[in-house]
Design a protein around this nucleic acid. Structure first.
Length: 337
DNA sequence: TAGGCCATCTGGTCCT
DNA sequence: AGGACCAGATGGCCTA
């Protein structure tokens, strides 16, 4: 199909959404596609084919006109006006313009989706969540955060992760699990999309690291994403905490990180997720947990309900400083300050 | 090779 | 009339 070159889209009216989508910000593949389309539009034999189509359309119209003459004796009333070549051309032009607008609109939609990808817990340029999974995870994330705020007390991490993974595909569940350094097999989703546990107690799975090899938590022989044989990466609070303060710009601290960070998945500055790729960690699906606040904020807000024990070891050895209930306003206040 | 995901085209509908 | 929005169809790409 002949496509209107993007350079010509200035002829169009300004659409409400997506029209201003910057062409430069398109993914390289898309830009390449568009270049191809532009080239095609200039030299494509479709131009000839369309012209021929127009010609044959007219001939067809004339034949039908003759037929109409015969039928006129039977059918009365105003004769239906045949669209002329001008009208057909105009219709085709409108169609091309509509296509361009539609493309632009979809690009805008995709851009919005991409920005959504960056604010849900797991984001990686190399292992992008699909559109549907992004939406599901975003919904779960909002829900989980709301639940946490409503509860007004120390969030149950496992419940949080369960909520996060509800309805997600197994690969995405693994991804989220990888983010939290949990064994995905401990919160498998069943066929109903409900998160369920299998095997040992989740708490046992999370907390009891009896083995001397902290890189191989109980139940693991390899890694979090065992399907991909990713090594399980142990993170101690202290190291992560120190690393955070050593590097004031966590966004650029990870040598292997290939994209923009998701905002920290943070319960009022309690803990957060970030992509942190140690040098020896795999090439994909590499996520880490780090205890920090959002970039530019202190790692733990002064009003935080929790504190991190410097000697504590991963995972989730959180110490409650104050179990006193914080109003949502306070929570929000401390978060946004 | 089947299935998933995606971009694009297209025609219909609704709204201004 | 024209634009936005939507959903179906289609074909390409990638991966298991």
């Amino acid at each position: 199909m002949l496509t209107l070159p993007f350079e010509e889209t200035h002829m169009m009216c300004e659409p409400r959404f997506g029209a201003n989508y910057p062409r430069e910000s398109l993914p390289e593949s898309l830009q390449q596609q568009e270049r191809q389309q532009r080239t095609t539009a200039r030299s494509d034999p479709d131009m000839m084919r369309e012209a021929e189509d127009d010609l044959s359309d007219r001939e067809e119209d004339e034949r039908e006109d003759d037929q109409d003459e015969n039928e006129l004796q039977k059918k009365r009333g105003p004769r239906k006006k045949r669209p002329g070549k001008e009208h057909v051309d105009r219709a085709k032009l409108r169609r091309q313009e509509a296509n361009a607008r539609e493309r632009s609109r979809m690009h805008g939609l995709n851009a919005a989706l991409e920005s959504l990808r960056k604010v849900v817990p797991c984001y990686s340029k190399t292992q992008k969540l699909s559109k549907i999974e992004t939406l599901r995870l975003a919904k779960n994330y909002i829900w989980a955060l709301s639940e946490t705020l409503n509860a007004g007390k120390r969030p149950d991490l496992l419940a949080f992760v369960q909520t996060l993974c509800k309805g997600l595909s197994q690969p995405t569940t693994n991804l989220v699990a990888g983010c939290l350094q949990l064994n995905a097999r401990n919160f498998l989703t069943d066929h109903n999309g409900e998160v369920m546990f299998s095997g040992r107690s989740p708490y046992e799975a999370m907390y009891s690291y009896t083995g001397s090899d902290m890189n191989s938590p109980p139940g693991h022989s390899g890694g979090v994403m065992d399907a991909n044989s990713k090594p399980f990466r142990h993170y101690s609070y202290s190291s992560a905490y120190e690393t955070y303060f050593e590097n004031p710009s966590p966004d650029s601290s990870s040598p292997h990180f290939d994209g923009q960070l998701s905002p920290p998945m943070s319960f009022n500055g309690i803990f957060s997720l970030k992509h942190d790729d140690p040098p020896d960690y795999g090439k994909s699906g590499h996520y880490g947990v780090r205890y920090c606040g959002a970039p530019g904020r202190t790692a733990l807000a002064p009003t935080s309900m929790y504190r991190v024990s410097p000697e504590a070891r991963f995972p989730y050895d959180l110490h409650v400083r104050s179990q006193s209930f914080q109003t949502q306003g306070e929570v929000n206040g401390s978060y946004h300050n």
